[in-house]
């Protein structure tokens, strides 16, 4: 087991975008300790993270650049935004991540697709793109998992956000 974790960690260290979240899956105690606020501590480029990316495109459209690995209803169409949950829903503290290229500066950014939870599915703006999506046995990059986990309100999925965590190394 130790060797396998070593191999996993070795691979993850080569891929910051996926590794930063996958790391958490192998630590029981830490699993529920991840929060959106703690995400910047993960291995993304902090220097670049300090600078917000330029924006173009429509966050209510599936072809918006941040949605390259999303699978679900866009919170931007459901009373929330790319970085906020609709009223009365609770952000999932744990999630999957993708790496999406911003057409404004042609740089790659790490995107956290936190689910919003506690109300039935929004049903608007269904969007499924799978750039870099991994199978569920590689959970940190898998968009086939209901990520309403570790919430107070429970497992019911409402919509998906697309939060920029930082520039990908």
């Amino acid at each position: 087991m130790t060797n396998r974790l070593d191999r996993i960690m070795e691979r993850l260290s080569r891929t910051a975008a996926r590794g930063m979240s996958r790391r958490s899956f192998f630590g029981r105690a830490s699993a529920f300790g991840i929060t959106a606020a703690s995400m910047p501590l993960l291995p993304v480029s902090r220097a670049n993270a300090a600078q917000q990316p330029g924006e173009s495109g429509d966050p209510q459209s599936c072809d918006y650049w941040r949605y390259c690995a999303i699978d679900g209803f866009l919170c931007s169409c459901c009373g929330g935004s790319t970085s906020s949950c609709p009223p009365g829903t609770e952000p999932s503290p744990i999630t999957w991540v993708g790496t999406c290229r911003n057409p404004v500066d042609n740089k790659d950014y790490v995107i956290s697709y936190n689910d919003c939870c506690g109300k039935s599915a929004c049903g608007r703006c269904m969007c499924n793109r799978n750039e870099g999506d991994t199978p569920v046995h590689q959970p940190a990059g898998s968009n086939d998992i209901n990520w309403c986990l570790g919430t107070e309100v429970g497992v019911v999925y409402n919509c998906s956000t697309a939060v920029v965590l930082g520039a990908a190394d």
Partner: peptide
């Protein structure tokens, strides 16, 4: 750290690891 379930006999299965 391994998931999903793939049976190979009445009392044997394997999972896929990350």
């Amino acid at each position: 750290g391994c998931g999903l379930v793939f049976p190979t006999g009445p009392s044997k299965f394997f999972l896929i690891c990350g």
